[in-house]
Each structure stands twice: as structure tokens, then as C-alpha cells.
Design a binder for these strands. Structure first.
Lengths: 340, 340
DNA sequence: TATGATGATACAATCGTTTGCACACTGAAC
DNA sequence: GTTCAGTGTGCAAACGATTGTATCATCATA
């Protein structure tokens, strides 16, 4: 059986309270007793039971990490593990633990969060809020520190870290404009994902600045990958002489799919169509051609979110705080300059 | 403040013990009281504090998940998130939580495990034991259920799930032999990783069966990627007419590196060199040429490990149990048939 | 010598649950 | 009118820590 504080107390011939204080280096304990207690604790391989400690301290040194949409979806994309890596770095450094939760078929996202918050296990919560789920409800009542990763709906009242996605949308579009492209398609818009909403705003701003009229049908949903009938839409868009010469795509996987689709129609990237992508994944790095892609720095997103959360737990944050993580456009071989 | 069992008791005009029993559907509680208590509990949004419950029940419904080598390394490879996905599926289904831990610069793997086990938070432990760390020490004393993912050193005394890596090594080599290759290089051997040790065994068996003499210098360490001087070794191996016509490579990333290296020497895959790889990653799927690669089914590895662990926690497992997860050779375009 | 300050330790309450046991009631059997 | 099941509820002791306060030496000071 594992040694308890009482065992240590008995062997060291002091009371449990003295053991507790000695091990926490409380100055009220004499040098002599302190060393004796610490020696005994080591001998018995005593580790304070965190369960008990957290109960009385009302603080667990555990943060909950919520991944949306079920593990099945989320872990499949390299973005999430990278975020987790960032969180883990800070956690291990600060001696915090991460309690993972994910929705699933048997457990909706909201239920999973409720579960996590209600359990009393966690002192704070990190929310991967890619999608707009009604998380406010289970959260509002609780006075639990929460940091979201990704821009939430009612931004001003919540804490979050994110890239400047409007800026990213602007930058990628501008990058193509600078290279002579005027007919630019926006691929992967999904109103449920704020990142794409924001990037679209930037895309539209850049076009407007360049004095180019926006073609509403050139903002294409990502669902064309799932749904083969939508391919007919793409098919239509990419035939004729006034087809797009460039594409801003919301994700490398989407981009790779597009490359394959285009190849089937004898259109090549970057000769016929230039492509700027997002997320800078390994797959995008190794596919042909290697993708010019925006690195959103998911790891840093995780680091910043965790740091902010810990500050909140320590009561160092008064008002809703937003942290912006810079992105980086990684140039590879999917964009060509248009001479006209 | 969050409602406690006492609040519910007061409002429902019963004792805390009755509340506890009513909410657990204990048959000793009358129908009338039960429904009243449950109504009140819902009204007050009462959730039992798991901390307190676990303390008295000595069971937390939390399993620890240990990733080796620091998050920095592990999460970088898609293998680990896939395992985590599998674990998460079972966990969410069984209403378990996962407590993640990872070594780091500031915290060695062994310390991290000690921390996890000592904390008293977890009822069981999942160990991603890719590498041979001396985990026995912090574990041996505890009567804590542990399942390892990956073949551990002293296999007979521990529980683990793994592929049959000897078989996988044999199968990949045989696959190349069947296609007329006789000069086969083994790339990525590392004595610290048991997977590669086992696969090498299979590789040697297959060669022996085919009556082909083993060339010891054709078993190459993975460190050639880190160390440029080792490239001179590869350089030497791949020049001359008796160079390898095929390679078994321990990982897609390694393979992609090799393809680049070979391209620099005007050798092409699969025309000049055939390549069978491991881990079936997205990058390997989208690189040129798309890799023929062994899918070790990391998700299933996670599922099986978690299921086994849960069985152990429930006391349903008496003796050290091993679970074997089948692998699958996914054929793509990195192997050609040798006509000679 | 009484008094007060100081320093070290122990006592006991607390955190929010669960659960073995005692208790009180009801109605039936003797 | 006892005794005896059987049923439903409450009491109190855990689980393993932390921490405010009381206690008790010890020693210096008046």
C-alpha cells in the first residue's frame, strides 16, 4: 500500500500537520524536524495524494483540454497535435497536468465539456473552438478560467488566442495579386469555422483594394471534397478562358485534393493555376508541387493559450484578454508569376 | 459557488447519504424520495465532486497516458496522435478521462511517470514505450495496472499491445524478394527502438530463407538523417553496379529523405531503387512517388491498449496479456518489379 | 518570581463524497 | 403484546491531505 502522511508522521514521531508543513518548507518547522521528516518521507517513498490535496486546496494543477468534433476528426489533422504539443510544453514545465476530453459519437462536445467542468477535476479549461458550438451554456455558470484557441463568436467577453486571420486572408490574396493574378478563387469557406470567415474578409478586402470585383460564386465551400456532386461546380468554374489563375485554399489537404482534381483536367499547378494554402503540413511539404502555405504556428498557439490560462488561474488576469500569434507565409513551388 | 451534496440534501429535506444513494439508484431508497432528490439535484445543477468521490472510492476513472521523449519529439510524428485518437475513442465511450504526461527538457520521462503515478490521480497507466527507458523502477513498487504500447524489453512479465514486428519485417522483405529484388537495404535500424530490432530479425529471416547472404553494412542506422557525415556512408553504398535495388525503410519521413538524397545522385524511385516503407503517413501518401508503406494501425493499437487497461482496472485480467494488432501493407508506387 | 514574548509542535476542523451500521417504523405472526 | 422481518432513513467514520488556532516549553526581561 502507498504510504500516507500518517505513516510518515508515525515513523518520524511528529503529527501529520508537522509533516505537511515540513515538506512544504514552512518556516515554522525547526531545521532538525524538517530534515528528519524529509528523510523519512524519502525512505517511505511518500508522495502526497493530489486528490486529497486538491480537495482541500480547491485547486488541482490540472487543466482540461477540449478537442471538438470527436477525436475521430480532430486528431486526424496535424494542427491539433501541434497545439497539444505547445500546451504540453508549458504544462510539463509548470508541473501541470492535462486532462483530455473529446466529443464522440456517444458524447457530444457540449456534454464532454459539461462533464469536464462538472467533474471538479480541472482548475481551468482550454477550448479548441474551431467550430461554433454553444459552449457558453455549460460554462457561463461556473467561475472557471477558460481560454479558447481560435476566435470565438462573442470575442469581447472571452479570452482567446488566435492568428489574425483577416490579415492572413489579406496577405495570401495580396501575395497572388502581386504576382499578377487577378482571377483568384477562395476555396474552403465554411460559415461554421470562424477562421475561414475571417480569412474570407481579408480576401475580399485585398480584392477591393486592387479594384477587382468580387465574384460571389468564386467563394467555394470545402464540402466539395465530401460531396461528388459539388465537383461539377468546380468543373464548371475551371473551364473556359476566364477560369481562375490562382486559388487561396483553407487547408493543405484540400489543396492536395484540388491538385489531383486539376491534374485530371490537364491543368497543372503552378503552371496553369497558382495555389496558396494554409497550415503548412508535412503532406503539403512533400506533395508535388510542394505547397506555398501559411504556417499558423499551432504550437505557439498552444503555448500562448496555456500561459494565458495559467495567468488566469493565478488571478493575474482581470479583463478578457486576446493574444495574437503571428503567422508566416512559407514559400515553395505552387505559385508562379503571371506575365501578361 | 457550485452546489454540493449537502445543498441538495437540505433542499430535498433528507440526509446527504440519502442523496448519494438516491442518485446512484440504490434500491434501498423509496421511489418517492428518489424522484424528489433527483429533481432537486437537477434544479441545483449538482454534479458530484469527482475529487472527493475518487478519494473515498480509491478509483478515479482517469487513466494516465505517457508519451516518451518529450512532447517536442513525439507529437511531431503522426503515429502518436493516431494512438491517442484510439485511446480517446474508448475513453469517451466508457466515460473515462485521459491525463496526459510527457517528458520534456525540464522533466525526464521517468520523472514524468513517477509524477503521474505518485500523484494518485490515475487508476491505470498507458505507456508509449517506443524507447527503452527504465520505467520499471517507478512502476514496480506500485500495484498500478499498466499497459504498454510497443514491445517492451521483458515482455513476459508485462502487458502490452503491438504489431508482430518480426513478421512485418519479414513480410516487407519478402514482398521485395517476390518482385525479383535480391540486394535489399535495411534503413533506419536503431537498437534503442524495439520495433526496428524486431523488424530487422524478420528481414534477416526472409533473406536467409531466400538463401541470400546478409551484408551487415546494409543495415543502416537512421541517424544518417541527422548526421551529414553518415551520408558518405549512404553515398558509398549507392554507387557502383552492385548497389541495392530495394530498400526497407523504417519510416515514411526517412523514406522521403532518402528519395531526395537519391534524386540528387540521379537515382529514381521506383525505376532505379524500390522502396517499402513503414507508417503509412499522409506525407508518404502524397509525396512523389506515393509510398508503398506498412500501416501499423496506430489507432487500433490505442483502442486495444485502452480496452486491455480497462479490463485490468476492473480486475478481469490475471496474468500478463499480450495483444497483437494486425498490420497492412498498402501498395502504392514506390516499388517496381525487377526483370532480370 | 511573575510576565511576556517567541518559537515549535499538536489539535481539530475542513474539503465533498461514500458506505457500514444502527435505528425507527410498519405490519404480520405467534 | 411481544417478537420478527422487512423497509427506509440518518449517523458517523472514513478517504488523505491542509491550515487556523491553541498549547506548551523556553528564555529574556522587569
Amino acid at each position: 500500500m502507498k504510504a500516507t502522511i500518517k505513516d510518515v508522521a508515525r515513523v518520524a514521531r511528529v503529527s501529520p500537520s508537522t509533516v505537511s508543513r515540513a515538506l512544504q518548507n514552512n518556516p515554522r518547522i525547526s531545521q532538525e524536524v524538517r530534515t528528519r521528516v524529509q528523510r523519512v518521507a524519502k525512505e517511505l517513498d511518500f508522495h502526497p495524494n493530489q486528490m486529497a490535496r486538491s480537495l482541500v486546496r480547491r485547486h488541482s494543477h490540472i487543466v482540461g483540454v477540449m478537442f471538438p468534433g470527436g477525436t475521430s476528426i480532430s486528431m486526424g489533422h496535424p494542427f491539433y497535435p501541434e497545439v497539444l504539443r505547445g500546451i504540453g510544453q508549458v504544462a510539463s514545465q509548470q508541473r501541470y497536468h492535462m486532462l483530455l476530453s473529446t466529443g464522440s459519437e456517444s458524447l457530444s462536445d457540449v456534454e464532454a465539456v459539461r462533464d469536464l467542468v462538472g467533474s471538479g477535476y480541472v482548475s481551468g479549461l482550454l477550448l479548441l473552438a474551431a467550430q461554433d458550438s454553444p459552449m457558453e451554456e455549460p460554462l457561463s455558470a461556473q467561475a472557471m478560467p477558460v481560454v479558447e484557441i481560435g476566435h470565438p463568436l462573442d470575442a469581447q467577453h472571452r479570452c482567446f488566442v488566435d492568428n489574425d486571420n483577416v490579415m492572413a486572408g489579406w496577405r495570401t490574396t495580396e501575395y497572388l495579386l502581386e504576382r499578377g493574378h487577378k482571377r483568384i478563387l477562395f476555396l474552403g469557406y465554411d460559415a461554421r469555422f470562424f477562421v475561414t470567415v475571417d480569412r474570407r474578409k481579408g480576401y475580399e478586402q485585398a480584392l477591393a483594394q486592387a479594384g477587382i470585383a468580387l465574384e460571389p460564386e468564386w467563394v467555394v465551400s470545402s464540402r466539395f471534397m465530401e460531396n461528388t456532386t459539388d465537383n461539377s461546380l468546380l468543373e464548371k468554374l475551371f473551364q473556359g478562358e476566364d477560369r481562375p489563375t490562382a486559388v487561396v485554399s483553407m487547408d493543405d489537404t484540400l489543396s492536395i485534393g484540388l491538385i489531383g482534381f486539376l491534374r485530371g483536367r490537364h491543368l497543372h499547378v503552378p503552371e496553369d493555376v497558382s495555389l496558396v494554402s494554409f497550415n503548412n503540413t508535412q503532406a503539403g511539404q512533400y506533395c508535388m508541387p510542394a505547397l506555398t502555405s501559411v504556417d499558423v504556428d499551432p504550437c505557439r498557439l498552444g503555448v500562448c493559450a496555456m500561459q494565458l490560462l495559467l495567468d488566469m488561474i493565478d488571478g493575474k488576469v482581470e479583463s478578457p484578454t486576446h493574444v495574437e500569434v503571428p503567422f508566416r507565409l512559407v514559400e515553395r513551388h505552387s505559385v508562379s508569376v503571371l506575365h501578361k
